[in-house]
């Protein structure tokens, strides 16, 4: 858990430093944090040992719902 937080902290710190230095527009921050927040949330859940149902399963369920797969 601590390792996950540390890794993400380092990654975000490193990237943010660049972004702020170059004065990036807001949308860069928005998209960046969208991805990072999603990754962090899932990683924390995984690290806590609670695997949320994954996109692979959603897709499988979706395909079954449409009736392409049985």
């Amino acid at each position: 858990m601590a390792i996950v937080l540390a890794v993400f902290a380092v990654l975000i710190f490193y990237d943010l430093k660049e972004f702020i230095r170059k004065k990036e527009p807001a949308r860069v921050f928005v998209i960046y944090f969208l991805f990072m927040a999603a990754s962090l949330a899932v990683s924390l859940l995984l690290a806590a040992g609670r695997r949320p149902s994954s996109p692979a399963q959603w897709i499988e369920a979706l395909l079954k719902m449409i009736g392409v797969m049985q």
């Binding site: 998209i31 990683s43 995984l46």
Partner: peptide, 26 residues
């Protein structure tokens, strides 16, 4: 999104890929 350089996003996307690859399957 009209961002001038794709390089700003690779880090975030790759991070998400790594998480997704672990997340995807038991």
């Amino acid at each position: 999104t009209g961002i001038d350089d794709y390089r700003k996003l690779t880090g975030a996307i790759a991070t998400f890929c790594v998480v997704l690859s672990i997340w995807g399957f038991g």
